[in-house]
Every structure is written in C-alpha cells, then in structure tokens.
Nucleic acid binder design. Structure first.
Lengths: 211, 211
DNA sequence: AAACATTGGTAACTAAAGTCACAAACTCTT
DNA sequence: AAGAGTTTGTGACTTTAGTTACCAATGTTT
C-alpha cells in the first residue's frame, strides 16, 4: 500500500495498523468519491491528487467549498461516521486521486491509542474549519472579480502550473454563478493583461500572478 | 456550580470532574467572550443564554456565523486550544450568558476516559460544521430578502417570542450589509403584511411567521 | 428645555450581478 | 465533410444591492 507522505506523519505502530485496516482506493478525474445523502462509514485520507468538496442547496445549485490534497482528510466525514450520519457534501476527484479509507471503528480506537493520530485529527478539524471560514469570507466580503482571481491562484497552487485548464462553464459552476458573467470578468482580466485566454485554458501572467 | 442541562448529558463521574476543573463564567448582554487573535486556552460549554459568533475580513467587515445556545459548545475553540492557536472568530453575549470553561488539559484526558464526552465533542464538531455550511448556503444562494426572513425566524426561535427586539442597524451589521438596505427590505415585508415595524422592535405576523 | 445621539424613512443614483438572445469558432462523431 | 455538441464573445436589458444625502421622530444627557 502506498502511504506517501503519511509515513512521515505517524508512528510505526500506527502505520502498520493503517496498512492492515485501511482500504486503498483510486479515483480518476471526475469520479464521484462521496455524494449528498450517502451514509459515511469511512474517513478518507488523501495520499495523492486533489479532491473537490461541494455543497448544494435545495434547488440544486452547487458551490465549491474547498480542496483536499495530499495528507488532508475530510473531518466532516470523521464526525459524520462517528455518528452514523449522512453526508452533507459531495466530493469529486479533480485529477487522479489515491486515498486510504479508514473504517469508523478504528478511528475511535486510534484516537486514544496513538497521540499522533489524535493530533492529526485535531489539526484536520481545525484546517477544515478555517477553509470554511475562508470560503464564507470570500463569498460574503469579496466581489466576484476578486473571487475569480483567488480561484485562479488556488488552481495554480494546486497544479503547480500557471496554465489553468478549465472551461468558463466549470468556473461558473464552482463559484455558483453563470457562464456569461465569468466570461465577462475573464475578458476584463485579459484586457488588463493579467491573463491570456485560450479554449479550455487560461494562462496566468506575471507579475500579477507572480511566477 | 450550575450545570443546567449538562447534568443530563454526561455520566456522574464526568460531571464531578466538570464541577472540579471547569470554570463557571457569567457574561451580560454585549460582553465580549472571545476576540479575534486571542489565544484559546479553554473550551466554553454554554449552560444558559445565547452566544453570537462572528467572522471578520481584513478590512474589518463582520458577519454573523451562528449562535451557540444551551449545551452547545464552540468546537473551533476545541481544535484551536488543542493546538495552541489564536482565535479566528469573535464571540459576543446575545443576552445573559452562563458558561463553563474547560481547561485544555482536561479536554484531552476526558476524550479517552469518558465516552459521553467524546460523543459530545464529536456531535459538537458536526453541528458546527453544519451551521457553517448553512451559513455558506444562505450567503451564496439566497437573496438578501430571504436571508433577512431566515434571520428573523432564527431570532424568534432563540427568544421564543414573535417580537424581535433589534435595530435595523444591528441587523445590517450581522448580515454584513448596510442599514438603508435593511430598512428598505423591512418596509417591503411590512407592506406585504408579514411584519409590523416599531422603534427597536419588529413584530412577526402569522401566518407568514407561523405562530 | 436645549443639545446631542440614535433610529428609521425615503429619494436618487451607481455598481454589480444575473438573464436572454444570438453568433462564431472549435471539437468530435459518424 | 456534414452535423451535433461544446466553448467563447458580446450586446442589451433587468434585478439586486450598495451609496449618498437629507430629514423627522424618538431618546438621552446636561
């Protein structure tokens, strides 16, 4: 089993247990990892790749909450499966994703047995809270053009490339707005020479998107 | 020490420890319970009253995230003080508030020692996540007039009265908009005979605000 | 009672975002 | 290569929200 960076996070005894009880899972780009309303029985720990986590309202509109990348885990899954709750969110693979699913019985056991696990879980809760707070901040206080720039910067950070491969439609979906609005704002950014637009590709230009 | 409803949540041995190590604190309306950037060393468990939790952006604009009422606790405080982090949020007493502050050393100890404590903490994490998700939903998907109605309903639920005692200015602050906008929307609700407006008071009318 | 602060009402304007309609360019399938 | 679907650009318009300015009513302080 490929534990990736996890092998540096946990003590040997815990790593052996993860090997034994964790289920290694692979997803390819676009795969649905978790859906709204499904029972959560495992907690996922991301080994490689990026996972997008969404929230939906009653009318079906969706918004991107945050990304999970290497060594991140969805702590909502943790508290959910400890309580046998249904998922409040949807998770989709952004690219090729490897993760280890930990069964809920072990989550509990390890919490007391391994301090490194407890610390990991607590840090994870805290990180996810902060992500949600940043998300709220972004939606509540920032105008769409600023949110778009933040979005592009995040995409750059995650992919490590200043060429972001997305359609205007996808951006609109993830920011919960309409394609026309995104095209308009992107064109404006291009006029300001901050980006270059191609089909399914956006090139982020220095110095605005520092290289 | 007044443990209120907590005495029904926890086992006797844990209640004795709460009595021994928890610090009982009282706040009156408007008191600052926690501020941005302060170190979090205790986790508060609300015994009575209502606490408002806010988030602020770089420019100083604030938005109301959620309320904590009887038996609720701020799980962000939990993960913060386990990691000796600074607060990302502000907490203000909405009315007279009694809470018990649990020192961080005990949080950890009780997690393994008392299943009822661990369950309480996990439920608390989950509830807070859901509150944040609802908050995001509200801001991202609902128009201001809908958010205003949700706000009034929540005030009614918390106070148990269909007469909500707030100024337009306070509502504007909590929804992160301006007073003029709120006055306009409130006047509209009054014209639709859903509310009656008085100075510092809004009466919610049935059948729209079901009695 | 005079002075001041708070609260709420309203008009007029601007800015931001959403909506509708249509066209052009490109990609993929058959 | 013809047709279908996807992606992007753009103009025109509406709706929603934010801003500024001013006034009147009510409370509070001195």
């Amino acid at each position: 089993m490929n534990l990736g960076i996890l092998s540096q996070l946990f003590e040997p005894a815990l790593l052996r247990e993860i090997e034994e009880f964790g289920q290694s899972q692979q997803f390819k780009e676009g795969d649905l990892i978790m859906d709204y309303g499904k029972y959560v029985r495992m907690m996922p720990v991301v080994v490689s790749g990026t996972v997008k986590v969404y929230r939906r309202d009653e009318t079906g509109k969706e918004i991107l909450l945050y990304y999970l990348s290497s060594s991140d885990s969805c702590s909502m899954a943790y508290s959910c499966c400890m309580e046998a709750k249904k998922s409040e969110v949807k998770a989709v693979a952004e690219d090729h994703v490897e993760l280890i699913a930990i069964p809920h019985t072990k989550l509990d056991e390890w919490l007391c047995k391994y301090p490194s696990w407890k610390n990991y879980i607590m840090r994870s809760f805290n990180e996810r809270f902060i992500e949600l707070l940043k998300s709220i901040e972004s939606i509540a206080f920032h105008k769409l053009d600023e949110r778009l720039v933040e979005y592009l910067k995040e995409k750059k950070r995650l992919s490590g490339s200043s060429v972001v491969k997305v359609s205007h439609h996808l951006i609109a979906d993830e920011l919960a707005t309409s394609r026309v609005v995104i095209s308009r704002l992107l064109k404006q950014l291009e006029n300001e020479e901050k980006i270059l637009l191609y089909r399914n590709e956006i090139k982020l230009m220095p110095p605005f998107f520092e290289d």
